[in-house]
Amino acid sequence: MKITLVLSQPPGYSETFFRSKIKGLKANGHQVVLVTAATNKSFDLCAHIQHPRVYKNPIRQLLSMLLVFVGLLAYWTKVNRYINLERKEGTSFKRLIEKIYINASLLKLNANWIHFGFATMAIDRETVPKAIGAKLAVSFRGYDIEVFLLKNRDCYQRLWMHVDKVHSISNYLLEKAFDLGLSKSVDSEVIYPAIDFDFIKKIQLSSDTLGTKFKLLTIARLHWIKGIDDLIETAQHLKSKQIDFEWKVIGEGDQKHTERYAYHIYKADLQEQVLLLGKLSHAETLEELSKTEIYVQTSLSEGFCNAVLEAQALGKLCLAYDAGALSENIQNNTTGFLSPKGQPHLLAQKIIEVMQRSNHEKEQISQKAIQRVHDDFSLEQQAKSFSEFYTT
Results as ranks from 00 to 15, higher is better:
residue 2 K to T: 09
residue 9 Q to A: 12
residue 11 P to T: 03
residue 21 K to R: 14
residue 30 H to D: 12
residue 30 H to G: 07
residue 33 V to C: 13
residue 48 H to Q: 09
residue 48 H to C: 09
residue 56 K to H: 10
residue 63 L to R: 13
residue 64 S to Y: 07
residue 70 V to T: 14
residue 83 I to L: 07
residue 89 E to R: 15
residue 91 T to N: 03
residue 92 S to Q: 09
residue 94 K to Q: 10
residue 94 K to R: 14
residue 96 L to F: 09
residue 98 E to C: 11
residue 104 A to E: 05
residue 109 L to K: 08
residue 110 N to F: 00
residue 112 N to R: 01
residue 113 W to C: 00
residue 116 F to A: 08
residue 118 F to P: 02
residue 120 T to N: 11
residue 123 I to C: 09
residue 125 R to Y: 12
residue 126 E to G: 03
residue 127 T to N: 12
residue 130 K to C: 00
residue 134 A to W: 01
residue 139 S to D: 11
residue 142 G to S: 10
residue 150 L to Y: 02
residue 151 K to P: 00
residue 151 K to F: 05
residue 160 W to M: 07
residue 162 H to S: 14
residue 172 Y to I: 00
residue 173 L to F: 07
residue 178 F to M: 05
residue 189 E to Q: 15
residue 192 Y to L: 14
residue 193 P to D: 07
residue 193 P to L: 07
residue 194 A to K: 02
residue 197 F to N: 12
residue 197 F to R: 08
residue 200 I to D: 03
residue 211 G to K: 11
residue 212 T to C: 05
residue 212 T to L: 10
residue 214 F to I: 08
residue 225 I to P: 01
residue 227 G to E: 08
residue 229 D to V: 01
residue 233 E to C: 03
residue 242 Q to H: 12
residue 249 V to K: 05
residue 251 G to K: 04
residue 254 D to E: 13
residue 263 Y to C: 03
residue 267 K to F: 03
residue 274 V to Q: 06
residue 274 V to R: 04
residue 276 L to Q: 07
residue 292 T to F: 02
residue 295 Y to T: 11
residue 296 V to G: 04
residue 301 S to D: 12
residue 303 G to F: 03
residue 304 F to R: 04
residue 305 C to Q: 03
residue 312 Q to A: 05
residue 313 A to I: 06
residue 314 L to E: 01
residue 319 L to G: 02
residue 320 A to R: 02
residue 323 A to E: 06
residue 323 A to N: 09
residue 325 A to D: 09
residue 325 A to I: 10
residue 327 S to R: 13
residue 327 S to P: 01
residue 330 I to T: 06
residue 336 G to W: 06
residue 337 F to Y: 15
residue 339 S to P: 11
residue 344 P to A: 09
residue 345 H to Y: 12
residue 354 V to I: 15
residue 357 R to L: 15
residue 358 S to D: 12
residue 358 S to V: 07
residue 364 Q to M: 13
residue 368 K to Y: 03
residue 370 I to T: 06
residue 372 R to G: 00
residue 375 D to E: 14
residue 378 S to N: 04
residue 381 Q to S: 14
residue 381 Q to K: 15
residue 387 S to D: 15
